[in-house]
Design a binder for these strands. Sequence first.
DNA 1: ATGGCAGACCACGTCTGA
Length: 259
Amino acid sequence: MRIATWNVNSIVARLPRLLGWLESAQPDVLCLQELKTTTDAFPHEEVSALGYEVAAYGLGRWNGVAILSRVGLEDVRRGIVDQPAYEDAVEPRAIGATCRGLRIWSVYVPNGREPGHPHYAYKLRWLEALHATVVAESSQDRPLAVLGDFNIAPTDDDVWDIGAFEGATHVTDAERKALAMLRDAGLSDIVPRALKYDRPYTYWDYRQLAFPKNNGMRIDLVYGDPKFASAVSDAYVDREARKGKGPSDHAPVVVDVTL
DNA sequence: ATGGCAGACCACGTCTGA
């Protein structure tokens, strides 16, 4: 079974590329983030035409997550356990579903903006809620994986130049400790192969020629429980999807599992 | 010292992203 995650930075703007990628990469399950549209406005017909069921969760301009599956889509759940609000709004940042016996979550962790900002505190609270969700769902007798845009670079090697991140989010101890908590809960970081260069970055800023310079970050992560991790046969970042006209600023992460 | 790009909508400026 082929599982993937991709922050598309607007499902509407990315639809032609998404459809083409589904046809070429042939994932069985795809987790999407940053739909930037409502559940109703999701392009259900176009995606269904390729054989995928859709569970989408979007409220409009920002955020929005979805799971696409051609191997079943059951027990859909929108939002995580005690999901915190930001400025009184509970945002569409997580959706879970069961696909052929595999429990999958598509998550879009808050950005944080800058350490000390209320959004940063929100990010850390959100990660605690994600941890609680993982703990709650780990009791089930089925493989579990959390995929998505975590907005955290797990190590200094996961950014092109750690010196450029002084005082910035994505690399702080508190954020990385939240990832460590997920690992303590039994999940493993499924590190993908890079198809070019030595580091498996998944995001490159649109500005400053970041992609051709490979000034990237690995922030789109796959966290799997032991059942999932032991079933992984391959994992890679599809950087080809970052090339050309009208790409997302993120590339898909693809994981093959014998489940 | 800062923006640069891209997308959505509060739409011809503003906000967000990381």
